[in-house]
Nucleic acid binder design. Structure first.
Lengths: 263, 263
DNA sequence: ATGTCTTTGTGAACGTGTGCACAAAGATGG
DNA sequence: CCATCTTTGTGCACACGTTCACAAAGACAT
C-alpha cells in the first residue's frame, strides 16, 4: 500500500481512515451519476447500493467528513459531491506527467477522464528518441532528458510510471528528485522512495494471479488429490524439478517486461 | 521437515487469509528474480526486503502454506517458487478472453506477460464490426456475437473487461452466462454478479484520486480555510426526492466513459 | 557430542476495519 | 404541538491484519 502515513497529530480532528479514503472515489462516482440525473437527495441505503458497499459503512465513512446528512431525508447530492471532491483535493488542478509512452502509456494518455476530475496531462515523456515530437493523444511526446525541467516548470507533483520494469526505479528517482511526491506505478517492480513520497501500484499480473487462486479453489473443491511436485523433498532435489516446470518465459522474466503488464 | 504432507490440512486448504493471497504474487516475483540469478536460498529478511514487506509478515504468510523453510538457513528459492505457483494455480493453463479492444484492451493484448505465468489470451472480442478480423497482437479480433461460443469452446473461466462503462455490465452478464467465473474489470462501474463469481477491479481514476488526497494533505499543512460552497445546502423537496429516488435503476449507471480510464 | 549461532515459526498484543442495532434528529401530517 | 415515521450518526462487539518478541529447530564448527 501507500507509504506509511504514520504520525500525524491530526491537525484538525482530521483522521480519515485509509479504508475510507479509498472508498470516497466510489461514492463520488455514484453521486456524480445521481447529480447528472438531477436527483436532489439520496439515502445512505440507496447510495450504498449504488456504490456496492454496506450502508452502515457508508454512513460511518461520511461521519469522518462531518455530518452532512439530514435525518429522515438523506444526503444532499450536490453538497456531498462538493464535500467529497474537496476532501479528495479534486477542486484543484493536478498536472500529471506520464513517463513511458508504450502501449499502456498511450492508452492512458488517450483517456479523456483525466481532465474531468481535476487531473491534467501536463506532458508525455519517453526515453526513445524516435518517439520524441510524435503526438500521442494530441500531446507531443518529449524526451526523457527534459524530465526534470518539465516537472519543475509545470509544478507537477504526481507522476505516472508506465515504463518497463527495468527503467521504473530510475525514472522514479528522477521524478522524485525533480519534486514529484506521488507516484502511480504500472511497472511490475517495487519502488523505493524517500519518506514523504506516496506510491500506489496498479499491477494487472497480480490481479490475475489472485483470480487464478480463487478460480483454482472453486474448481478443486472435489478433485483435490495432490499431484505434481514430490514432497517437501530434500531441499536440493526439489530445486531441479521446480526450475524445469516454471520456465515458460523465454526472455528476461520480470527484469524487463513489456510496457503494459507485469508478470 | 520431510515428513507428513500427503494429508489434507483443512486449516490450510481452506484458510489462507485474503491479505496473504494478495501478497503471494509479490513474493513469487521476487523469488523468480532470485531464481534467475541462481540464488539457492534466501532468508525471510532478504526476501521481505525484496518484496517490500515486513519479514515477520512474510514468515507468517508462508506459514499458511506450510513449513517450507529451514531454520538457520532460510527458504529454498526453487522449491518456494514451485509451492507458491502451485498455490496460486499457476501450474495450469488459464485461457483468458479480453472484451473491448480499445486503447487499453489493445495494450493488454500486446502484453507478453500473460503467457509467462500460465495465462493465455484465448481470444479478443469487440462489439465494433469494423474491428472484426483485424489482428491485434497477432490475434484476430472476433465479434461480440461469438462471445458465448468462444468462452465455451475454449473453456474460458477468466474474463477481462476493457469496454466503456456503459457496456460493462452487459458484457459481464454474458461472460458469466457463458461460464466465466472470474472477472477482471477495467471499466469504471460496479459490476453485479451472481454468487460464486469473483470480480476484481482495476481503476486508475480511483488510484489517482487517492494520491490527490494524500498530496493535498501534504501540501495543505497550513493553508486550509474552506472557501467554496455555502453550507449544508437547502434540503427541501425531501418528499419528492424520496419518490423519485425509487427508480434508482440498476441499469445505466455511469453513462459511458472512454475505454481506458474511469472518472 | 556438544555448544554456538542463525533463522524460522508462532503466541500474544495491538491496531484497523466491519457490521449490527438502536437512540436521537428531524421531517411530515393532523 | 404532538404523534409518527424515516433515516442518520455512532457505541459496541467482533473479525481481520500487523508486528513484536522469543522459544525451538537446525546448521556448523570444534
Amino acid at each position: 500500500m501507500a507509504t506509511g502515513r504514520t504520525h500525524r497529530p491530526a491537525t484538525r480532528s482530521r483522521g480519515i481512515p485509509e479504508a475510507t479514503v479509498a472508498r470516497l472515489p466510489l461514492y463520488l462516482r455514484a453521486l456524480t451519476a445521481l447529480s447528472e440525473r438531477s436527483v436532489p437527495t439520496v439515502s445512505s441505503e440507496e447510495l450504498a447500493a449504488a456504490a456496492g458497499v454496506n450502508s452502515a459503512k457508508l454512513r460511518k465513512d461520511f461521519s469522518y467528513l462531518g455530518s452532512y446528512g439530514t435525518r429522515g431525508v438523506g444526503y444532499d447530492v450536490e453538497y456531498l459531491v462538493y464535500q467529497i471532491s474537496r476532501e479528495l483535493g479534486l477542486t484543484q488542478d493536478w498536472p500529471v506527467v506520464i513517463v513511458g509512452i508504450g502501449n499502456l502509456g498511450a492508452a492512458l494518455a488517450n483517456y479523456g477522464g483525466f481532465a474531468s476530475r481535476g487531473f491534467r496531462v501536463a506532458a508525455l515523456i519517453d526515453a526513445d528518441p524516435a518517439m520524441t515530437g510524435k503526438p500521442v493523444a494530441g500531446i507531443p511526446v518529449q524526451h526523457a532528458d527534459a524530465l526534470e525541467d518539465i516537472v519543475r516548470d509545470n509544478g507537477v507533483s504526481i507522476g505516472v510510471i508506465a515504463t518497463p520494469a527495468g527503467a521504473a526505479q530510475q525514472v522514479c528517482d528522477r521524478l522524485v528528485g525533480a519534486g514529484v511526491t506521488s507516484i502511480l506505478n504500472f511497472a511490475p517492480t517495487m519502488l523505493t522512495v524517500p519518506d514523504g513520497v506516496d506510491v500506489r501500484k496498479v499491477d494487472l499480473s497480480i490481479e490475475l494471479q489472485i483470480l487464478a487462486f480463487h478460480e483454482q479453489r472453486k474448481a478443486g473443491e472435489d478433485a483435490a488429490a495432490d499431484s505434481g511436485m514430490p514432497a517437501p523433498a530434500a531441499v536440493k532435489g526439489a530445486a531441479a524439478a521446480a526450475a524445469a516446470m516454471d520456465e515458460a518465459d523465454p526472455k528476461g522474466t520480470d527484469g524487463e517486461a513489456p510496457a503494459v503488464m507485469p508478470a
